[in-house]
């Protein structure tokens, strides 16, 4: 049942990715909403779930947003796997409902961006400023947006 919920959430985020994200991009830096969901799934269910969620959602973005099959799937699979490292059955709530969550999102977003833009970086198609802007700004923007579900959904944060 939980996985169906995740799937539906994924489809909704995909639509947001396609329609809303370009509109809320700052200086052509869009947030990665899908990554927030992946990190959340990984922290709730572990590395395997995180990896599969990363792969499927990455594949969907590849086909419907980037039209480049593979690269988002790769970046998000690894990000989901890394996020799964923080999975702990006894600390699920601490990981997902405290300030640790945006921290993990930031780390995973950096990894995701690094992998996603690695072809351009290695092919030296970016200037130094562009690399910083693309990787850091995108990770920061995603991290900031990850605070929204934290404040709206999390019981702990609401209690705070």
């Amino acid at each position: 049942m939980a996985y169906i919920r995740y799937f539906v959430a994924g489809i909704i985020i995909l639509f947001l990715h396609m329609i809303i994200v370009p509109l809320i991009a700052i200086e052509k830096v869009p947030p990665d909403l899908m990554l927030i969901l992946i990190v959340y799934i990984a922290l709730k269910n572990g590395q395997i779930a995180g990896s599969i969620a990363g792969f499927v959602s990455g594949l969907l973005i590849d086909f419907f947003v980037d039209f480049t099959p593979g690269i988002s799937a790769l970046a998000k699979t690894i990000s989901g796997f890394v996020a799964g490292y923080f999975y702990n059955e006894t600390k699920i709530e601490i990981n997902t409902e405290t300030i640790r969550f945006p921290g993990i999102v930031l780390l995973c977003s950096l990894i995701n961006n690094l992998i996603y833009f690695s072809p351009e970086i290695l092919a030296q198609e970016f200037g130094e400023f562009e690399i910083l802007k693309t990787i850091l700004a995108r990770a920061l923007y995603t991290t900031i947006l990850s605070l929204i579900p934290l404040f709206t959904i999390s019981k702990r944060m609401r209690m705070v």
Binding site: S51, I52, G54, F55, G58, L59, D62, T68, P69, G70, I71, A73, L74, T77, I78
Partner: peptide, 11 residues
Amino acid sequence: LVLISLLLIFS
């Protein structure tokens, strides 16, 4: 999954 992703990239 990484392998599939790479195959997709290279194809």
